[in-house]
């Protein structure tokens, strides 16, 4: 959650609870609602690393609240993250390892592995179909996330077919 919080703080200084709310608003249902304790723990670590700093703001009748802001180091860190290309998914696929190594183990035959994996992917796809039906089209970040997951799964299934043609 470190970089998410840095990105939100790049917009404006905020206290912990505001950050939690901002995360929920930005992602809609695409991101599980963060636990406030986790937000504070992460902020503490970011402060220790010098990426954010906190100032105490006095409040009448209540304990001071800490407002966090981004440091120059924090901004550099964030910029580096945003600017660098992101690692593609599935660079090291565990299923691929199983498929290649299965004959050595003498346990599973490749056709059985492929068939089981196909059913598993279709079951995941079926969950995504349900999810798409239950998600409001106005929740655009979530819709895009679901569509992305579906496209990845389709690619995985196509690739499974290639494995079957070549290896089984």
């Amino acid at each position: 959650m470190r970089l998410h919080l840095l990105a939100l703080l790049a917009k404006e200084p905020a206290h912990g609870y505001e950050l939690k709310q901002a995360l929920e608003q930005t992602f809609g249902s695409a991101y599980p609602s963060p636990n406030i304790g986790q937000v504070y723990v992460t902020l503490g670590r970011l402060e220790k690393d010098g990426l954010v700093r906190a100032v105490d703001v006095e409040q009448s009748n209540r304990p001071n609240k800490k407002v966090y802001y981004l440091t120059a180091k924090g901004r550099d860190h964030l910029t580096t993250w945003v600017d660098e290309p992101t690692e593609g998914p599935r660079v090291r696929d565990e299923f691929f390892m199983k498929l290649v190594l299965a004959p050595l183990t003498g346990i599973a035959d490749r056709m059985a592995l492929i068939n089981r994996q196909r059913r598993h992917y279709l079951s995941l796809m079926s969950d995504l179909n349900d999810l798409l039906n239950r998600t409001s089209p106005s929740d655009r970040v979530a819709m895009l996330l679901i569509e992305g997951a579906m496209l990845h799964l389709q690619a995985d299934l196509d690739w499974l077919e290639r494995c079957q043609e070549d290896l089984a």
């Binding site: 249902s29 695409a30 079951s123 969950d127």
Partner: peptide
């Protein structure tokens, strides 16, 4: 084809 997980996008993905 098994159907299993419920929940929001953030929980499923």
């Amino acid at each position: 084809i098994a159907r299993r997980r419920r929940g929001t996008a953030g929980e499923v993905i």
